[in-house]
């Protein structure tokens, strides 16, 4: 495992920890899109079904369990926790996320590495992950006051994607895999979605003002 891959996994892990910390410490999920969290839960379950069939490393297995359980815990808090659920911005989190699920599924049926149940699930999870942040970005744009932790959550998620691209470039030159166009294209789309956010995050940091995305 190269350093880029490891840094990617760590920033991904940090993003989840930041979000759990925000929800736990403030007992509030304001500014957090439940739809994005539900999409991530679907992504992780679809992709990590190999948890019991393909062992790669203890590191991989532990991370898979962490990502599935943490996303489930966040969704559970936002739906069931007596205090947290009341802070959910239901009226602003209106993105039609079912459309993303359906579109990703159709794409996975057409573009996959093999027409098997597992490969279709894997491709589906790659496509869905690429667009799962959209409800969160729309919600950020609608909320006038983005709190620091929510901003950092999205920043870490974006960093995770950027590090994974560097990881693929590194692997391309050291191992030479050229046929992996599904994660490459989906990964580039996914990272591009953060470009706008990175720009405004940088501006708010540079000018030392609160993050606000233009409508």
């Amino acid at each position: 495992m190269n350093a880029f891959r490891f840094l990617g996994d760590m920033t991904h892990l940090f993003s989840v920890l930041v979000l759990l910390l925000k929800i736990y410490a403030t007992k509030s999920c304001s500014g957090v899109s439940r739809k994005t969290q539900e999409l991530y839960m679907v992504v992780f379950v679809a992709r990590y079904m190999d948890l019991f069939t393909d062992y790669i490393s203890l590191y991989n297995s532990v991370m898979k369990v962490v990502f599935i359980t943490s996303s489930a815990a966040i969704v559970w808090c936002m739906r069931r926790h007596p205090q947290v659920r009341r802070t959910y911005d239901r009226d602003q989190d209106t993105f039609r996320h079912v459309v993303l699920v359906a579109a990703s599924f159709v794409l996975a049926l057409i573009f996959n590495e093999r027409f098997t149940f597992r490969e279709i699930c894997w491709a589906f999870s790659i496509y869905l992950e690429a667009v799962a942040i959209l409800p969160q970005l729309v919600l950020l744009q609608r909320s006038r006051n983005v709190d620091n932790l929510t901003g950092q959550y999205v920043l870490f998620l974006g960093a995770y994607r950027a590090f994974y691209i560097l990881n693929w470039i590194y692997r391309y030159f050291t191992e030479g895999h050229t046929s992996r166009w599904i994660p490459w294209i989906a990964g580039l789309v996914q990272t591009a979605l953060y470009a706008d956010f990175f720009y405004y995050y940088f501006l708010s940091w540079k000018n030392n003002v609160k993050l606000e995305l233009p409508a």
Binding site: R5, D9, H12, D50, D54, I56, S57, N60, M63, K64, F67, W122, Y164, N167, R171, E175, H177, R180, P183
Partner: peptide, 10 residues
């Protein structure tokens, strides 16, 4: 194995 290069990622 080299035929499964990316699925060792998360």
């Amino acid at each position: 194995s080299s035929s499964e290069p990316v699925k060792d990622e998360l």
